[in-house]
Design a binder for these strands. Structure first.
Lengths: 214, 214, 214, 214
DNA sequence: CATGAATGAGCCTTCATTCAT
DNA sequence: AATGAATGAAGGCTCATTCAT
């Protein structure tokens, strides 16, 4: 972004190659993301991407080994963002409100990118990609599981729940929240948050948390 | 129809034409299902399917108008089965146990078919198919919503929940239960059932139901 | 048609095979003619023909070696009919009226069969067929040439015409008369006849012929 | 456009891209014309055309949308040339000689292209093409009809002829003149011209025209 | 003899990738 | 570095012909 801002004079006549180069690569990256999301990976041609990015096919292959590598690069950058938001369950603040806020924040950008639609198509086709996603998901679930375990140790959760199952359920709900929009439904983040909290906390604990927070 | 039902022994050596024909169509159907599930729709060629079914390409086109029609036929047959199981929430029996049983029953067959993996890829590509699925899903959600409304009218649910959100969450969990297996996890149906029940019933109600049932 | 009308009793239970066989062959022949005319040779499938004739594909290949042989059989039967009508120029009757009548008679059936449309498509594809047609055409032209030569020897034609060219022109006009109908025009046979006669006879001869006839 | 027009020598070894591209498109065009003419449209494969033009199938589709578009392009370019030559009947010069010259000129190039053989096959299969040809033909006939009407108004034609029929006959003869060569006959343009003139002019008028011209 | 299911060569077309300019 | 023309493997689908029943 701010490369060579200090020496504008010097390189005025020729825009630095590296910058132009990065612009092109970025354009291809963006175009790939948009088109893959819109039309799916298979139905997006390299020509589509190059045209959309305003570069030649030859340039496409200069910056990315092949179509699949562009996909992997995109996934790699988006994978964290794609993942449901990590919630800090252990700060003992009003968990419902906190969760609702995070959900709101997260999905408003994710949905507009439309990229989440791409993953399902790919998972069954690309073993490597499947692993990338699985790894990211596992990392997330581990993280959530640890938090829930801590909560339980503090005696704040239902006593008879299987935390593994709970964390899986929560992640799943969050993961597919995007589909609700696709299906034409609007999302009530507070209601989702309420439900999730009820899976975790018994009513008395929940009441206490909410009171102490307010 | 009435083909020699009386003399099964007699015509054993020669399989009747219609039967063989049905076998072939069924083989193509099965092969389509398996290959679509394994490799995705686009990456399964008509040749693949024909080979897998042990017939020629020409035969494929004798039994199915084209590749897409095979897909639609498969979807059509599986769509009900794909849908999460409808649970009768209103019979006032122990809901946790009941739900767990139904889940067990349903997913053991569904998962082995592996077919559920196919849907996501298709939804964004085939408007007609998207509608078929959406319609089936809506029907299911309506059904569930009605049951939940009845439960609430009977004063058995949390008072402050949005039933629409609850039903969506439940359906979503059930819908993606299959993935848990893919991801290598084993499913504890009782735990899932427990969580779902907690979304719906307040603890006191739940306790009462379980006692009265036992 | 009237085969075995005399012995209805005898062959009542089993329609003689040869008759049924001939019926089938004839049906295929007819269907071939109709469909080839309507859709062209290439775009008519053997299945089309068999269905239209109400027989199975297998039967098709029982009665005709292959699709091409059916075509050749049809052409062979129709080729004389396809050819422009042979006119007797030498009987010294009113040639205009005579020709007009013959044209009328000939084309009314030919056009309705629609078969003439088929020839052009085939000529460039099938050397053997091309020869069949060429031979028939040459025979016709020879015939016409001989008549014209006789007429000239009798001093009835223009003295300075090349009879070969005249006969070619006449045959060509007659050959493509069918197209005029296709193009939406109605045919005035008398006018065509008048033109043709003027190519052959000088006005004074023509007048004499018409007078003597009337 | 302005590519080094000044230094033709300099860039001799490297054929400019656009020129090579045009060469290729032209080669495909030519090959299409030749092969369509020789084997008919349906029996010419895209591979045939590409091979004959010395390019790959992929290149075919770079230059032409599909096989049919190549055909349409060819027709479009040839349609005027395919049409029988327009003759100016009204300039009161020796019409026989004039017509003979024009015919000679026209058919010597048209016949060598062999393309005229293609039209009949297509007309019954391609509605759009049929219209293109019909329109061109109608335009021609209208033109000829107008000229003949003017001639008649000047009292130069037979009084009792139907001009519509005459113009149709003339166009038809001219249209199929090419076939005469195919059939092995040589064309005597003067004889054809003579016949046509006799269809139009009564002998006395014709004599006068020829004298006045000479 | 009749049937029509089965076969597979071959067609048109697409698109990822290469490479001469 | 940039371009985009060129390539050809591969896919969906058709249909003449064969052959088991």
């Amino acid at each position: 972004m701010n490369e060579q801002q200090n020496s504008l004079i010097k390189n005025f006549p020729t825009v630095p190659k590296q910058v132009r180069s990065q612009h092109k690569k970025h354009a291809l990256f963006e175009s790939g993301q948009i088109l893959f999301s819109e039309k799916g990976y298979d139905h997006t041609t390299t020509k589509d991407i190059a045209s959309h990015a305003g570069v030649s096919i030859g340039s496409f292959y200069r910056y990315f080994e092949d179509k699949r590598q562009l996909l992997l690069a995109i996934i790699d950058e988006r994978i964290e963002q794609m993942m449901p938001p990590v919630v800090n369950w252990t700060d003992h603040r009003d968990p419902e409100e906190d969760l609702a806020n995070r959900l709101q924040q997260h999905y408003s950008t994710l949905i507009s990118s439309g990229f989440y639609k791409l993953l399902p198509e790919l998972i069954s086709k690309d073993r490597e990609l499947e692993n990338i996603i699985r790894v990211a998901k596992n990392r997330l679930q581990d993280h959530m599981l640890k938090q829930l375990e801590q909560l339980r140790d503090e005696g704040m959760t239902w006593e008879d729940i299987d935390l593994d199952t709970v964390s899986w359920c929560i992640i799943n709900l969050l993961e597919h929240l995007t589909e609700k929009v696709e299906e034409g439904g609007s999302i009530h983040y507070e209601e989702i948050a309420k439900l999730i909290c009820r899976m975790i906390y018994p009513p008395d604990i929940l009441n206490k948390l909410e009171e102490s927070d307010g």
